[in-house]
Write a protein that binds this DNA or RNA. Structure first.
Lengths: 339, 339
DNA sequence: CTGAAAGCGCTTACAG
DNA sequence: CTGAAAGCGCTTACAG
């Protein structure tokens, strides 16, 4: 059935089907009008010759591509895994395919991956910028005039749509829950201060507590990378400092899971003598023991919104840059108890 | 600095630098020999004009591409997330970029994603085939003569390299641990029988027990999708059946985490009256409460090996298809106790 | 090294 | 619908 060896082109299909190359192209792309019988003839010829179209030739001719760049911190981080899965589902449904690159927290790698992805001629791009990014780092995307949506982490001065969560409010929800449960001594295992998420979550938590009369010396903050390892390390640091606290807010669920292990190993009992709140409400949060109270922001909602906006832009919609911060929701489970 | 509007081509660079297009191309690709001063002139012109090379044009001309297709079940599954991160790291270091597509357990989607990825002119492809796949499903890859490595799930009759884990032996390790701990009544929450992993893990576990004198009626098996949700459902089914068991082997850690929640909600105590073993040793296993005993097979080792073999093939290495099943290792933690 | 040219496989404007 | 042709931006063989 499939011809092997030399490449099958639209010209071969045209000859086989007894039509012009223009008709083959139109049949493939659903452009122009044509009798159903003609379309069927073309389809049959393609099948018989084992035709595989060549998007890179089409891209060269039209300037249009069906590839989309996705630059994230690390796809092994479950938050970005969930995001990517949703984003990919929407994009492939629309006929696009994602090119994925992990950039870590490395501005140099981010720059070189932006360049690589652009060189592949993507139709659009989405990026959650690495820590300490500034607008200039993303300039090549602007110069290429391709649509881009940033997400999760915001960078000032960019002409791109942004989709994130209301990090400040999410942290405030955690603070209010702890206060309602009667806690008076707090700790935070926060994310990197050089990211908007890291900064805003610590800020939202601390400011909310202070506005309710909690003194600064009763709020102990450590900050670092948003990883399981740092969660555990943060827990150990807090314990070693001798600080008194009964309620711990973590940058995200990964950090909370690491912290949970760190606290338990050192004799604390989550959901008994220690309350713990995470962020993201990953699938594991519900299954955790005890089930983890978490601020839900929905990587899947973010993925959907990012994909929608990017597709709109790729389809030519113009207008000023939009920004949305999805409303968080606190999912209370057994890791939080009254003081 | 960067010219906006019209596209900057090698011809523009050549004119600006006062060299030929051949020299520009050679400078870009490190081909031919040339004075360092010439190379520098070209680099400078590229910078000043904001040149972005066009791989799709190069691909059309040479037939060679720097894109690689990655077809997996679901990147939101942490196992595939870890795999993808490792694979991506190796591939980008070698100058390739991955196109990622999730195929679920859907043969039709698998077929259409294979076609899409091929149409983008990838230099190679890696795929963990969906359940019930047969060799014919992957025929388009063979016809296109592009290198391919399959992994995790094996399909008979394919001329591709395969990288997986020794699933049978991994399950046997779990069985032997339970036996050594004195258990006599067992349950399995297995994966889909239509995948080699699902089939071999159940088989390895059950056969090992039987060979040690355990009767079939003391081994209760349920099988289904390798998800958290099925883990919980499987736990509930097993409890409802009234079967007696003190040791449960799960297809993987995701299933084990779901099962863990299901058992705990129904009054069982993991690491006390119930022993639990997972598979994959995800980062969460160590942090779980109680820490989860798991068969380690290493998505990262698999990612490394798949990437190495694919790159070798893309660089032209021929020879018969290779297959390796990485040796599993049981990581014993507190979710397993003596009966 | 230069310079001029061909050609990869498409899409599309054009005349019929 | 056909048919013939141009051209997207590269790489590369060729003669110098």
């Amino acid at each position: 059935m499939a011809k092997q060896g030399t490449k099958v082109t639209v010209a071969d299909i045209a000859k086989k089907a007894g039509v012009s190359v223009a008709t083959v192209s139109n049949a493939m792309n659903g452009t122009g009008r044509m009798a159903e019988a003609t379309r069927e003839k073309v389809r049959k010829a393609m099948d018989e010759l084992g035709f595989v179209r060549d998007y890179s030739a089409a891209k060269l001719r039209t300037g249009r591509s069906r590839l989309v760049g996705v630059l994230i911190q690390d796809v092994a981080n479950p938050f970005y895994g969930e995001f990517s899965a949703t984003f990919e589902a929407v994009l492939t449904r629309r006929g696009f395919l994602p090119i994925l690159a992990n950039i870590g927290e490395d501005r140099e790698r981010q720059a070189s991956m932006i360049a690589e992805v652009l060189a592949h001629g993507v139709a659009g791009m989405v990026i959650s910028p690495c820590a300490s990014s500034i607008a200039k780092d993303l300039a090549p995307i602007i110069n290429q005039r391709i649509p881009c949506v940033t997400f999760v982490r915001e960078v000032d001065g960019l002409p791109f749509d942004f989709v994130g969560a209301d990090d400040y409010e999410g942290a405030a929800l955690a603070a209010r829950q702890f206060l309602a449960d009667g806690h008076r001594n707090f700790a935070v295992i926060g994310g990197l201060e050089e990211t908007t998420t890291g900064h805003l979550r610590v800020k939202g938590f601390v400011e909310t507590l202070k506005s309710e009369g909690i003194a600064e010396e009763n709020i102990h903050v450590v900050q670092g990378p948003q990883s399981r390892a740092f969660g555990r390390q943060g827990a150990e640091e807090l314990l070693k400092s001798g600080a008194a606290f009964t309620a711990v807010f973590c940058h995200n669920d990964l950090v909370a899971m690491g912290a949970s292990a760190g606290f338990i190993e050192n004799g604390r009992h989550i959901g008994k003598d220690l309350s713990l709140i995470g962020f993201d409400n990953l699938p594991e949060a519900e299954l955790w023991s005890p089930p983890l109270t978490s601020v839900e922001i929905g990587p899947r909602s973010i993925g959907d919104q990012v994909a929608e906006w990017l597709v709109e832009r790729m389809e030519g919609q113009s207008g000023p840059a939009r920004a949305t911060r999805l409303r968080p929701r606190l999912v209370v489970r057994k890791s939080t108890v009254t003081a």
